[in-house]
């Protein structure tokens, strides 16, 4: 049983309105707060209508209450600057590291993660956005390191013929026709 705050009458626990005076019970999750500029202002009404809300005593119970607390991961303002940085860097690496055959694969997956991070951040899901952003960062560095390692190995074996590493020119790949050296 719960008591009405207006007339003191007892009502059942799931009652929305008082059975005696009709006053409305506060919800556990209330209506979202209306911005001040958009809020309906009774004083601006002419008051000559049949229904006059200003005189309606029930209206006072409908004032917004911020009882409802959203989950941690919903509707938080998120800094999208870092996600955008990882997106840009992943695009750059996807183009720069493509000649290493596999170097741009992490970067392409990184582009997808950065895009999802920005969408999640736009939707207000801060924690998910941060996780995607972290993956975009990891994939960027993976692509960078992979690209550099493969490239260095390739140039080293091609240019200097390092001992036991394969020289692709031995397999008939003569790239000197495209490059002037």
């Amino acid at each position: 049983m719960k008591q009405c705050s207006q007339c003191g009458a007892a009502n059942s626990d799931d009652a929305l309105f008082c059975s005696q005076c009709g006053a409305r019970y506060e919800h556990e999750y209330s209506v979202p707060a209306v911005p001040e500029a958009d809020a309906w202002d009774p004083s601006r009404e002419s008051g000559d209508g049949i229904f006059s809300p200003a005189s309606d005593s029930h209206r006072q119970h409908e004032t917004p209450q911020s009882v409802y607390s959203p989950p941690v991961d919903a509707r938080q303002p998120v800094d999208r600057g870092n996600s955008a940085l990882w997106l840009a860097l992943n695009i750059a690496i996807a183009i720069l590291c493509c000649c290493t055959l596999v170097g741009s694969i992490p970067a392409i997956i990184g582009i997808v993660f950065a895009g999802m991070a920005i969408s999640k951040a736009n939707a207000g899901y801060a924690e998910t956005a941060r996780q995607y952003e972290r993956w975009a960062m990891i994939l960027f560095f993976a692509a960078l390191v992979l690209g550099i390692v493969i490239y260095v190995l390739f140039i080293a074996t091609g240019q200097f013929g390092l001992s036991n590493l394969p020289d692709f020119r031995d397999y008939g790949f003569d790239y000197s026709e495209w490059f002037d050296y």
Partner: peptide
Amino acid sequence: PAPTLPAWAAWAALAVL
């Protein structure tokens, strides 16, 4: 504050590539 990119920039970049 750092400049941001819209989410469609990622999908557009993938498509262009």
